[in-house]
Design a protein around this nucleic acid. Structure first.
Length: 516
RNA sequence: GGGCCGGUAGCUCAGUGGUAGAGCAUCUGACUUUUAAUCAGGUGGUCGCGGGUUCGAUCCCCGCCCGGCUCACCA
């Protein structure tokens, strides 16, 4: 038994191996303190981040480094350690990148070398020294000072495979980020994507607003809501399923270009493309129509892809998607074009209400057309595609097409077989909106729980006159999936919803360890 | 909610109707340019939980819990 194992039983049968390791590491806290460091240290002034070091000197050869003697101070999490008696190496990781550190006994103080000898994988350390290349050519820091910054008590997943258990990855995202640096890249891309959209909208004169997440009436989409309660007012409130009706109130008030990027909540199924809370961009532009937004969408998507990933062409599921080239089909055209089995329908058939009702179990021709579209076309829309002209029955907030009142001036954007955007010329006629709400109420009475509620304050706002306006929503999570190549929405949401886990027990471990 | 698949050491995974194995991690020792370091030795498991069948279950059966995929719903 080494001297730093003294002080607690060699192996108590009551302790699991995991708890034993925890106790071993906990005991090291005292030893770190004895060497003169705080186990949970203070601020550390670094000259470079690890990625900065790599970016600046990855091309510098051994002779140059020896001649220039670049001194750096850097910090990171210890990910590998190779000790060889009186010297050794470790890799430290910061911001998803690693740098090797070389520690030799005669280059640091006695206590610093002692500290190196008791570093555990997962500890956070700071290093000062000069850059050099090892015999095998790896850029490394030759340590001259070593300091301790934070103690890891739980150990790290396997160094070669990382953390693969998806349940653990989602429940303990912090551990996922430590063990799988590529996860960090996904969320960096997500952040760039959102920043790019904000930048583009700001440049075009849109202003960002925040509207209620807790709403007395829910609307703006077809979905079941979460219900909560406010005690003081003693009222039930719904977590919003969409911000749409509030944003259009603002347009009515004269905020002619508005947008909001935030969470929506829908009390529905969980799947690889659905999370109960998800992030949506909605924007509204007065004096524009859905055709304007088609063009705007293409510009937004192309530049977002470029700014987030470096290219308008992205790879998803082994295919190349080109956001620089978005196709456009009418919904009826798409049904014909992508008809799956048997002879394709004719343009006359997809306009014929009776033909549509015969080919779907939906109750209205419009719902039947959408049903056929979803069954035949959706998964085939891998390349970015705009589908336009949606039936009025499924579009209670969109303006009718002047030439065909059964259809609305609405489009959706599809990519990788997923809907990623929805836009339309907004219905601004209050009396027509009243009729649409009443149509929704009738659908609700037929058992459609997701049909709209009547929102009289919204009607009142329209009665003051909303300018002709077009609006659009873009699903940020799904767009992130496509731009980062992730197949599950849980891989682009940092903390996806899971059932809560049971008792963890770590407080008891700490209690026991600290009482020893 | 339905269907299918999975849960074995801290992690990544084998495996068997006779109460379990590997690699990594961890511990001990050696090693002053290693890098999935190496070498030698050791520790470590209520085989998800509960029932049943059986002389005997981690394995077979039933139920439950947790997760993944998928269908439905939806974006």
């Amino acid at each position: 038994m080494s001297h730093y194992n003294e002080g607690f039983p060699q192996r108590s049968p009551a302790l699991s191996l995991e708890q034993e390791l925890f106790e071993q590491r906990f005991a090291r806290i005292r030893e770190i303190e004895a060497l003169g460091w705080r186990p949970y240290g203070q601020r550390f002034e670094f000259t470079h981040t690890v990625p900065q070091i790599r970016a600046s000197w990855s091309a510098a050869d051994a002779e140059t480094l020896e001649k220039d003697r670049v001194r750096v101070r850097a910090a990171g999490r210890v990910m590998t350690v190779r000790r060889m008696g009186k010297a050794g190496f470790f890799h430290m990781q910061q911001l998803g990148e690693r740098i090797q550190v070389y520690v030799r006994k005669d280059a640091v103080s006695e206590n610093e070398f002692r500290l190196y000898q008791i570093l555990d994988l997962g500890d956070i350390a700071g290093v000062e020294g000069y850059l050099f290349r090892t015999k095998t050519g790896e850029l490394s820091i030759h340590a001259e000072k070593l300091t301790f910054l934070s103690k890891n008590l739980l150990g790290l997943p396997e160094k070669y495979h990382g953390l693969e258990d998806v349940e653990l990855r989602y429940r303990q995202r912090y551990l996922d980020l430590i063990a799988n640096p590529e996860v960090l890249k996904v969320f960096e891309t997500r952040a760039r994507l959102i920043a790019s959209l904000r930048r583009q909208l700001n440049e075009r004169g849109f202003i960002e607003v925040e509207t209620p997440m807790m709403q007395p009436l829910y609307g703006g989409a077809a979905a079941r809501p979460f219900v909560t309660h406010h005690n003081t007012l003693d009222i039930d409130l719904y977590l919003r399923i969409a911000p749409e009706l509030y944003l259009k109130r603002l347009v009515t008030g004269g905020m002619e270009r508005v947008y909001e990027i935030n969470r929506n909540f829908r009390n529905e199924g969980i799947s690889t493309r659905h999370n109960p809370e998800f992030t949506m961009l909605e924007f509204y532009q007065a004096y524009a129509d859905y055709r304007d937004l088609m063009d705007l969408s293409c510009e937004l998507l192309e530049r977002t892809a470029v700014e987030a990933t470096g290219s308008a062409k992205v790879h998803y599921n082994g295919l190349e998607l080109d956001f620089g080239n978005v196709r456009r089909y009418r919904m009826r055209e798409a049904v014909i074009e992508f008809w799956k089995h048997g002879p394709k329908p004719t343009p006359g058939q997809v306009r014929d209400p009776e033909w549509l009702l015969r080919h779907s179990d939906k109750q209205t021709p419009g719902e039947a057309l959408v049903d056929l579209f979803e069954r035949h076309c959706e998964e085939a829309l891998v390349q970015p595609t705009i589908i336009y002209e949606y039936p009025v029955e499924v579009s209670p907030l969109a303006k009718q097409n002047p030439d065909d009142p059964s259809m609305t001036d609405r489009f959706e954007i599809y990519a990788a077989g997923m809907e990623i955007g929805n836009a339309f010329t907004e219905l601004n006629d209050p009396d027509e909106q009243r009729r649409r709400f009443e149509m929704q109420l009738a659908m609700r009475e037929r058992g459609d729980e997701e049909a709209h509620q009547m929102d009289e304050d919204y009607l009142r706002a329209l009665c003051y006159g909303m300018p002709p306006t077009a609006g659009e929503g873009i699903g940020i999570d799904r767009l992130t999936m496509i731009l980062t190549g992730q197949k599950s929405i849980r891989d682009v949401i940092l903390f996806p919803l899971l059932r809560p886990e049971g008792e963890i027990g770590i407080a008891e471990w700490l209690r026991q360890a600290s009482s020893r």
